[in-house]
């Protein structure tokens, strides 16, 4: 069996953490508490979340989903466009390639810090440009724009990821279908629509899945940029999990319950997506 080694290792590596996660979500464990002193409290943590006693839970669900939808769609469209641009012969290709990779190669927490410096309304470089060129001062991280600014960083950082996956896909498409189509007199648009798109579809969807999953668990950048603020403007669920379980509060059990709900959300969502691709993919 080819699958066995990978599956065995994955089971070994993830069984304990997952079981622990589910278990701890029905206890009252707090960070730094001795493990032997925890108590089982049933589904109280879940009840607390779903009944709205945790004020920030539902707003963060909404924020996370909005963020995911926007980020994924923008990144996919832009990424596809860039992949098409790359998929032609031109000079300095490896230079462009290197440029595109830069956003992903910088450590995310440093990315967050750098953008925070650049976004600063008083001494940030972005406002230096907007003030020079447009004569306006933008409060990038103020309550109205913080969400969009965070989104912008994500788009900046991860569009190249989508672009490169699609580009790799475009590169490994066999060339005969195109030659055949050319013989048949198909134009560029037609051959793109009827040949490229279906062939690239599985990878395109893969990029969509990875981006939607990863944008749901995005943490480092918003954590550094805004800490979820101002107010709740950028309180993504992943930040919320961290804030509950670590940082100042240390409600590990409540964080675990939130994480389990987050997991349920991501899994059902990607289940939908995956089914969609696999079925679509099989018709090609």
């Amino acid at each position: 069996m080819y699958i066995l080694p990978a599956v065995t290792i994955l089971v070994l590596l993830t069984l304990v953490p997952s079981v622990f996660l589910y278990y701890v979500s029905i206890t009252d464990y707090e960070l730094g508490q001795l493990w032997s002193t925890h108590k089982l409290i049933g589904f109280r943590n879940y009840h607390r979340l779903l009944s709205g006693r945790d004020f920030e839970f539902w707003p963060s669900v909404r924020i996370s989903i909005t963020f995911m939808l926007l980020a994924t769609s923008i990144e996919t469209v832009l990424g596809f466009a860039i992949a098409l641009l790359l998929n032609q012969e031109f000079r300095f290709k490896s230079l462009v390639f290197g440029c595109l990779l830069m956003p992903i190669t910088i450590t995310p927490s440093i990315v967050g810090q750098m953008w925070k410096l650049m976004y600063n309304a008083e001494y940030g470089v972005l406002n230096y440009f907007t003030e020079r060129l447009l004569g306006v001062k933008v409060a990038w991280l103020g309550p109205e724009l913080a969400f969009l600014s965070t989104l912008m960083v994500d788009v900046w950082q991860w569009t190249p990821f989508v672009a490169l996956i699609i580009y790799a896909g475009l590169r490994s498409i066999p060339s005969e279908p195109f030659e055949a189509a050319l013989v048949d007199g198909a134009n560029t648009v037609q051959s793109f629509w009827y040949i490229t798109l279906p062939l690239i579809r599985p990878l395109l969807m893969l990029a969509v899945i990875f981006r939607s999953m990863d944008s749901l668990k995005l943490f480092d950048v918003p954590f550094v940029l805004t800490q979820g603020g101002p107010g709740s403007a950028t309180e993504l669920l992943s930040l919320h999990v961290y804030r509950l379980g670590f940082a100042q509060t240390g409600w590990v059990a409540r964080a675990a319950a939130t994480a389990v709900l987050l997991l349920v959300m991501i899994i059902s969502l990607s289940r939908l997506l995956v089914r969609h691709i696999r079925e679509g993919g099989s018709t090609v």
């Binding site: 008083e122 001494y123 001062k137 309550p143 913080a146 940029l225 101002p230």
Partner: peptide, 21 residues
């Protein structure tokens, strides 16, 4: 305070002062 003060930690606060803002 500067308009994005709602995101300021001590770091941004002291930096704004040190930058003369």
């Amino acid at each position: 305070a500067p308009p994005d003060v709602a995101t300021y930690t001590h770091e941004e606060a002291v930096s704004a002062f040190m930058a003369g803002r």
